[in-house]
Design a binder for these strands. Structure first.
Lengths: 263, 263
DNA sequence: CATCGTTGTGTATATTTAACACAATGATAC
DNA sequence: GTATCATTGTGTTAAATATACACAACGATG
C-alpha cells in the first residue's frame, strides 16, 4: 500500500471507529544501568519528540485500549499499566504539530477534515522490563503511519516535547513516587532475578534520594516477599552479592495490605 | 419557554457546543451531624438516583468546566475539587436510562439523535461545607431539564445508583482516605470554626475507624496549623470545648510538605 | 451538692526509624 | 603469596514516634 494511501486510511479509521475527542498518552518507564528511562517517539516530518499515544475504539473498554496500544508499541503483553491523570486543558494543543505535519507531508486540509481539534487525554504510566521491550515504530506495523523513530531516553535528559508531554512525565513521576509503597514497582521494572544493590538503586532512582544500604536491605527482607537464590559474580573486585527474586504471591498480598512503605 | 422546547434546546446545545464522548461525574462530599454525606440527584421520569454530572464545552478547560458545573449545582464558588479517576468501560452504560427517559417523556428517537452513545467519564470528588450548599435542581435553572430532585444522602446509605455510580463513590472514598494526609480535607468540609471533637469525628468518619481522643488532639496541635479561640457552649451537660479555626497559610505549607500523616 | 458525660492535659511504655561499625568476599596489584 | 581495595552481609545502639492509659476540670441535671 502506498504511503499516502496508508495515511488516509489511518485517518478514516480514527474518524469512524474511535471515540472522538478522547486520546491516551503513555509514560512508559524502564530501568537500565541505574537509570530510569522513558519511551519517546518522533513523527515523520516533525523534529520534536513526544510520548506514544493511542485511541479508544467505539466498542472497546478504555483500559483494554491502553493495553492494546502499549502491546503494539512495545511488543509486551504483560506490563504494569495504570492511569494517573486526565489532561483537559485547551492550551494542551497550542503546540499541536498536526498542521505542520500535514503541510510537510503534502496533504490538504480536506484530507484531515473531521479529525477532532481538541482532545481530552487520559495519561497512563507503564512499568516495563527494559530488556524485554522491542520498541516498534508505527511505520513498520501500519498502526501509526506518522511515527518514524521510537527510543528510550533518560528521565533526567528528556528534551522539550510536543504538547503538554513534559508536564505529563512530571505528573507520572510524582504519582509513581507516591505509589511506590502500594504498587508492584519492583517486579515490573526489574528482571526476574536481581541483586539487593540493584533493587536499592531502583528505589533511589525513582525517589531521587539516597537510602541507607543496611536499613534498606533489612526492611526489604522483613517484608518476606523476597526469595534468596545463588550468589552472583559479575566480575567486579568485590564480594559477590546474592541474587533475589520476588515471591509474587506474597508480594501481591503485601501490596494489598499496603505494608511496603519505604520512606 | 415550554418544557419540550427546553429539552430540545438542551440537547442541541450539547451536540454543538460540548466535547462529544466526554462527560464528568461528581462525588460531592459534605459533613453534617457526624455523618459523611454525598449529593445525589434524580431525573424526571426515572426513579433511580445518580450522581450529578456535567460536560466540557469546546473551548473550555476541563477543570474550569468541572468548577462551573459544580457551581451551578451547589451555588458554591469556592470548593475543593479534584479528579480521582477516569472511567472508560463500555458496560458503564449498560444501565443507561436515557432511552427510558426519552420514551417516558414522549420524545422520538430522532429528537435525541446525534447524542453520544458512549462516554468516557472523568470522576471528580468535591469537598464542600454542608451548611453553605444550596442544592439546585436543574429544572429551576434550565441548566439540565431532566433533573427533578437533588439531595444529600449518607454515604453508608447510598441506594443502587444508575450506571457505575456506586463504584465511583467507592473509588472516590478510597482516594479521599489515601489523600487525607496531603490534601486540605479539614478546612473544606468543616465550618470556619469547629471543636476538636468535631474535627476528630470528621477524620473518624472518613477513615471509618475510631481514633484515640487524646493522641488525636496532641497530634493535631503539634502540626501548628490550628488557632484556638473562645470556649463554646452548646448546652450539653459537660465541659465546654474550645473552638478552633485553621491557620490557612500554615495549613497550606504543611500540606505542601506532606507533614499531616494521620494513620 | 452529688452525679454524669464530656473535655483538656500529662506520663509511661512499646514500637518504629535512623545512625553507625565491623567482618567477609573476591578481584587486582605487587 | 599477600596486601589492597571496593563492595557486600549483618548486628547493635540511640533517637524519634506511636500507642496505651489515668486523672483533673467543667457544666448541666436531678
Amino acid at each position: 500500500m502506498e504511503y499516502r494511501e496508508r495515511i488516509l486510511r489511518f485517518i478514516e479509521e480514527i474518524k469512524t471507529s474511535c471515540l472522538p475527542s478522547v486520546s491516551m498518552d503513555f509514560v512508559v518507564f524502564g530501568f537500565h544501568e541505574g537509570q530510569l528511562k522513558v519511551l519517546l517517539l518522533k513523527w515523520q516530518g516533525v523534529d520534536t519528540w513526544m510520548l506514544p499515544g493511542g485511541r479508544v475504539r467505539m466498542d472497546e473498554n478504555m483500559e483494554d485500549a491502553a493495553y492494546r496500544s502499549l502491546r503494539e508499541r512495545t511488543g509486551l503483553a504483560e506490563v504494569f499499566l495504570q492511569q494517573f491523570h486526565t489532561f483537559g486543558n485547551v492550551i494542551r494543543n497550542t503546540y499541536y504539530a498536526m498542521e505542520e505535519t500535514r503541510t510537510k507531508l503534502g496533504f490538504s486540509a480536506e484530507d484531515f477534515e473531521g479529525l477532532p481539534h481538541r482532545d481530552i487525554s487520559v495519561g497512563f504510566y507503564a512499568l516495563v522490563e527494559y530488556t524485554k521491550v522491542n520498541p516498534t515504530p508505527g511505520l513498520e506495523l501500519a498502526l501509526d503511519p506518522f511515527t518514524e523513530q521510537i527510543q528510550w531516553c533518560n528521565v533526567e535528559e528528556v528534551p522539550q516535547l510536543l504538547f503538554d508531554h513534559n508536564e505529563m512525565i512530571q505528573v507520572a513521576l510524582k504519582t509513581l513516587r507516591r505509589q511506590l509503597s502500594y504498587q508492584p514497582i519492583g517486579y515490573t521494572l526489574l528482571p526476574d532475578q536481581f541483586t539487593m544493590p540493584q533493587l536499592q538503586q531502583l528505589y533511589e532512582t525513582i525517589l531521587g534520594q539516597r537510602l541507607d544500604r543496611r536499613n534498606f536491605q533489612k526492611r526489604m527482607l522483613s517484608y518476606g516477599i523476597l526469595e534468596r537464590g545463588e550468589k552472583f559474580q559479575n566480575g567486579g573486585a568485590y564480594k559477590a552479592p546474592y541474587l533475589y527474586r520476588f515471591d509474587r504471591e506474597k508480594y501481591q498480598q503485601a501490596l494489598a495490605e499496603e505494608r511496603l512503605l519505604v520512606v
